[in-house]
Each structure stands twice: as structure tokens, then as C-alpha cells.
Design a binder for these strands. Structure first.
Lengths: 334, 334
DNA sequence: TATCATTGTGAAATCGGTTTCACGCCTCGG
DNA sequence: CCGAGGCGTGAAACCGATTTCACAATGATA
């Protein structure tokens, strides 16, 4: 009674009375196999409980069945639930397509680091990058023919495929709502303006002003860094310079919460004196008081889209970058 | 000018004037190779820029160089920054040991689902599980000899290796602080009592009462479910039944925030009328007002410990489950 | 009817390492 | 001086799939 060893092609071929080559053809959906033999192989596969040996397939075919998800940890982005959620969307779609997700949390900036070696070594079939800051490595890999998808907009204009949130639309919707609400002096606390996302949200803000035939006062545009503290201090500056400011669009929820703290510390109330809108629809936007109005993005869908772009590339199908829609969620703060 | 093809053993063997077997020995640190040949091989490896072909190694040796991290998505735990942080700790340590992290966000409860097939197929060298609810699959895999580490305590008493936060110690420290502060009527809002973690925190709470020679009133022990809302309603019940309750230990920050909302809604103040301590040291614990006193765990360290246990198992070294220390962080709420 | 394509199939080579096995050489004990 | 034992080494088998290539059978064409 030997332990049931894992069946291989050889066993299936024997059981089905065909050659191993035919087994391979059937299992890879080669059309040209006689239906009867196909059926025989399928039956044998079923009965023996055959399962592909990934390593053997990888060696012979060059396809590893693995997709890397590369996260730049210089930003410790992974402690942000945002990335966890994106990743789970990616993972789900990949798994449905019989691909596995290899997670690499690391500093990606080096064109010659361990990650670079790993990816260049063709140990994965493709790579999905998060939040790129330098794209030298990515360009290099792309040139070598490695399928790539970027989550978040690429740093520069480029021909790389990407999926991103509609940052412009979010900035536009938030600002438009504040204006339509009757606010006269709408400020913005931006995030890192170096990033495309940061810039696009600001562009949306400016666009609303333009449509209203106005130009925002330069000093209504304050640069934060996505932290609670920066929201707080920038709001303090705003209140000092513009005591009559009556609305703020903060480019993420954390800064919005900081801003609210500053507003209330100044003895004013939200939203009556100053309306506030954040961005992200994070958990704290629901638990804060007042509850925060914010821009919601379907984060899981973003991940799923990234995975779909990757799969399309692998299949040689036409691929197009995607911008995912956002939604204004109105709660108490605006 | 052909593109420089990836060098293989054959190239190195030729360059170093030895056989492929010897190359393999050198690269796998086989002691018995003549130092001169070792040097020659190393030199050739260096000069040709050789890099191992993962699939070939996997096929021949059976070691894939991959460790699965399995996350039960029934709980959508991955949108909790906690798990992202743990994962990044795991990933870092594994990568240092030339192992890659394969992420599987999925429903693990089935002993016969795709995850089960994947893991049973030996496509990874080991698996790290998060937040187990049913351990049938894990036990089955362990029986098959797959190295396993559980992050969070296993469901039942077991011989499986695990790493966990000192839940008991956290519950103890929080409650002890509240008592020492002079609070007479310290309540607890527990999380899911079915989980080991939930139970252990409660045990810590009970232990303090015991040490003070007291027994907590049954109705001071309220069961929540880790959600903001549950913290809120349980606190309302507490205030109704015990108008003189003067402290609450909530088993996570979210419930603590809900409790604070309920306390303030009842016209009482935190911490003067009722002191509150949470658990997790989440971001919102710092941004809430009043800032939340809480129990901090070193989450990255937890992940690193999990990875280390895995590596020890792979190396056949002695392995011991680990309980990671926690720290009481005092802010404004207690 | 003779010839050329086309189609389905299996034998065998291949992917790039690891591991077994046998052999030659050297040392040591009797 | 002979045989046993140990050590370093290379040839070759092996891991489990994929893919090339040759060949036989069939159908189409002239």
C-alpha cells in the first residue's frame, strides 16, 4: 500500500492509452485532438486526480503562473488599508485566472536591487506596480518585454498601461459641491503635489473655479503631505490669513480630520462656518464627529481592473489604461 | 551579435573547467569540493552574471522558494491595515532569506477549494495563515508535512506553530491601569468571544479583578463584534444599567470610539466621568478627540516572527511558538 | 490513378537544475 | 604488501511538463 503518489502525464497517458504529447495537447486545449481521445484523457485526469506541476510547466513553457505585485515601502504604503484592499482585488481576479500573486514589499527605486534581479530573471510572468516614484526600473523591465501594469498614474507621460482613480473628477466633484452649496471662499489642502494624483485633484479644483469664472487666490491653495498634522497646520494658516474662508477640500480624509480639529479649535463649527470635504472614504470618515463628507473610490474595483489589464496583456489582447470613477459621499461635514 | 542569453550550469562548467555536478555542489554550499575548483566556479559565476533559474531548481529539488500567506477574506480582514502591516513584515524577512511571498486572499474554510488544491499541490514550501476560523484545512496540510505557521492563536489547543500578540497581557495591562487609576466599576466590551484573541483579552480583565480580590459583575461584561456600532450600543446598555460605571476597556479601538460617542451623547465626559482604553493603537486612536489610550502591539514584529518561525521549520531547526509583548499607550481617554 | 496537402499522433529532445552512483585516488591498519 | 574505507569528482539519470519533428493516414487535386 504505497501512499498515492502524485500522478504525472505518464500515468494519464497509460490510463488513457495515448501518448504524453496528446495528454499535453488536451490539457492545453489544442483543438486538433480527436474528441474520443480527448474524452479518454479527461476521464483519466478526473479519475487519477491529476494536478499540474507548476514547476515543471514553468520550466518547459517559460510561464511561471506568477504575477508580482510590487509595493514601494519607502512610503510604508502598505500599512494604509487602501493598498491592502487593492491587493485583495488583484489577487481575486488573478486567482480566478489560475495565476498567483507574489507580493514584494520593498524599496523599488534601485534599478539594480534584488527586486530588479528577481523581475528580470523572469521568475514571474508580469508585474503590477503600486505608487511609482521613479519609473526607471519599470521602463527597463518593459523594454525587456515584461508585461507591466501600474496602479496609480505613471510619473511621466508614457506608454505604460495603468489604472487609476479619477482624481481630477474627485477634485472637481468636491469643489463643485462646495461652490454649489453657496460657499464663496473655497480653499484646498493638497497632498504631495509631486505625485500625479496630487496634481490631478488640484486640477479638478481649479477647473471648478474656472467654470465659475473665477480664479482662486493663490494663498487658498495650501500644500500638505497627507498627514493629520499637515491638515491641521495648513488649516491654521488658512484661518489666520482668511478669516472668512468658508469651505475646504482636503485631498485625503486624514488631512480633513486635521483641518476640522483646527477649525473647531478656532471656535468655529463644521459645516456651518466652514464646510469640509475629504478624499478616500476611509473608516475614520465614518467614525469622526462630525462625520466626514468625502470622495469614495471603489478600491477593490481598482485592483480588479489592474489584474484584468495584466491578464489581457498576457493573452495578447488589446489593452487600454483605465480611469475608475469616483463618487461624492455626503455626510455631515459639507 | 546575439542577445546575451542567460548563462546556465553548462556555461559555468565549461568556463570553470569542471562538471555541472560540481557547479551545483558549489552553489549549494557542499563542503566537499576542492577550494580551488570552488574558487573557479565562483569566478565563472561572477563573470557570466549567472542567476539561478527558479523553475528548474524547483523541479529538480522540490523546493519552490515560495511561501503562501493565506488570508481569510470572509472577514475582509485585508482592508484592516493590521494585516497589511503584518504581511509587510513577513515579506521583508522572507525576501532576506531568498523566499517570495505568495498572497492568497480567499475563503479558506473549504478543505477542498482551490486554495486547498494549490497548497496540497506543493506549489509552495510552506504556508502562513491569518486569523483562522476553521482549522480543518490547516490540520490536513500539516499532516501532509507542509510547514505551517499561524498568525493569531489557533482555534483549538494544538501542536501547530503560531505567533500571537499577548492578548491576555494587553487585557491585563489595560484593566490594571484603570483599576490603579482609582476606577471602581470597570466594564469591558469584548470582541468576538469565539476567537482565542477575544477570549484572552477577557481573561486578562478577569485576572485583574481576581488580584484585587473582586469579582466583576456579569453585566459589566458586554459582548461586541469589533465594530464601531457595537461599541456604541454596548456602551449605551452599560450606562443604562450602571449609571456609575467609571471605566471601560474596549477590545479594539473602533469599539472604544463608539463607546466614547455613547458616553458623550449621555452628557458625560471622557476620561473624567468614564475612562476608556482601546486595543490596537490604530491611526484613529491618535486622531480622535479625546485621543484614545490603547494597547499597542508591534505588528511588523509579529509578521517578522511568523516568517522566522517558517524559516526555522524549513531549516529543520527547533521551533517554538511566540507571544509578542504589548505596550500600554496612555493618551487622553484614560 | 498518381501526387500533394492536411491532419492527428507519438517518439524523443528539451527546459535547467539536482542527485545518485560508480570510479579512481589516497590513507590507514593489519 | 594488500584490502578496506573515505573522499572528491564526473557521467548520467531524473524532476514533469512542452514542443519539435517525422510519419502514417486521410482527403483533395489534377
Amino acid at each position: 500500500m504505497s501512499a498515492k503518489a502524485r500522478p504525472t502525464y505518464s500515468a494519464i497517458a497509460k490510463a488513457a492509452g495515448v501518448s504524453e504529447a496528446t495528454v499535453s495537447r488536451v490539457l492545453n486545449n489544442d483543438e486538433r485532438v480527436n474528441p474520443e481521445r480527448t474524452a479518454a484523457v479527461m476521464k483519466a485526469v478526473e479519475e487519477l486526480g491529476y494536478r499540474r506541476h507548476r514547476a515543471a510547466t514553468a520550466l518547459a513553457s517559460g510561464r511561471t503562473g506568477l504575477i508580482a505585485v510590487v509595493i514601494d515601502d519607502d512610503l510604508s504604503v502598505f500599512s494604509d488599508p487602501f493598498w491592502g484592499t487593492v491587493t485583495s482585488g488583484i489577487s481575486r481576479v488573478l486567482m480566478e485566472n489560475h495565476l498567483q500573486t507574489v507580493l514584494m514589499v520593498t524599496s523599488v527605486n534601485s534599478v539594480d536591487g534584488p527586486v530588479a534581479h528577481y523581475l528580470e530573471g523572469r521568475e514571474v510572468d508580469g508585474a503590477i506596480f503600486f505608487q511609482l516614484h521613479k519609473d526607471a526600473l519599470v521602463r527597463k523591465l518593459a523594454k525587456q518585454g515584461l508585461p507591466i501594469v501600474i496602479t496609480g498614474s505613471p510619473h511621466t507621460d508614457t506608454d505604460l498601461y495603468f489604472v487609476d482613480t479619477d482624481n481630477f473628477g474627485g477634485g472637481y466633484a468636491a469643489t463643485k459641491h462646495l461652490m454649489s452649496r453657496g460657499c464663496k471662499k473655497v480653499a484646498i489642502i493638497t497632498g504631495d503635489i509631486e505625485t500625479t494624483a496630487g496634481h490631478q485633484r488640484l486640477d479638478g479644483y481649479n477647473q471648478v473655479y474656472r467654470e465659475f469664472g473665477r480664479v482662486p487666490n493663490k494663498s487658498l491653495i495650501r500644500q500638505g503631505d497627507y498627514s493629520y498634522e499637515s491638515g491641521q497646520v495648513q488649516m491654521e494658516h488658512l484661518l489666520a490669513e482668511h478669516p472668512d474662508v468658508d469651505a475646504v477640500f482636503a485631498c485625503n480624509d486624514l488631512m480633513a480630520l486635521g483641518a476640522i480639529a483646527a477649525i473647531e479649535a478656532a471656535g468655529k463649527s463644521v459645516p456651518d462656518d466652514v464646510a469640509v470635504i475629504g478624499f478616500d472614504d476611509s473608516v475614520s470618515s465614518r467614525t469622526s464627529r462630525p462625520q466626514l463628507s468625502t470622495i469614495r473610490q471603489d478600491i477593490t474595483a481598482l485592483g480588479e481592473a489592474a489584474a484584468e489589464l495584466m491578464i489581457a496583456q498576457l493573452n495578447g489582447e488589446p489593452v487600454e489604461s483605465r480611469i475608475m470613477p469616483v463618487e461624492l459621499v455626503l455626510r455631515e461635514s459639507a
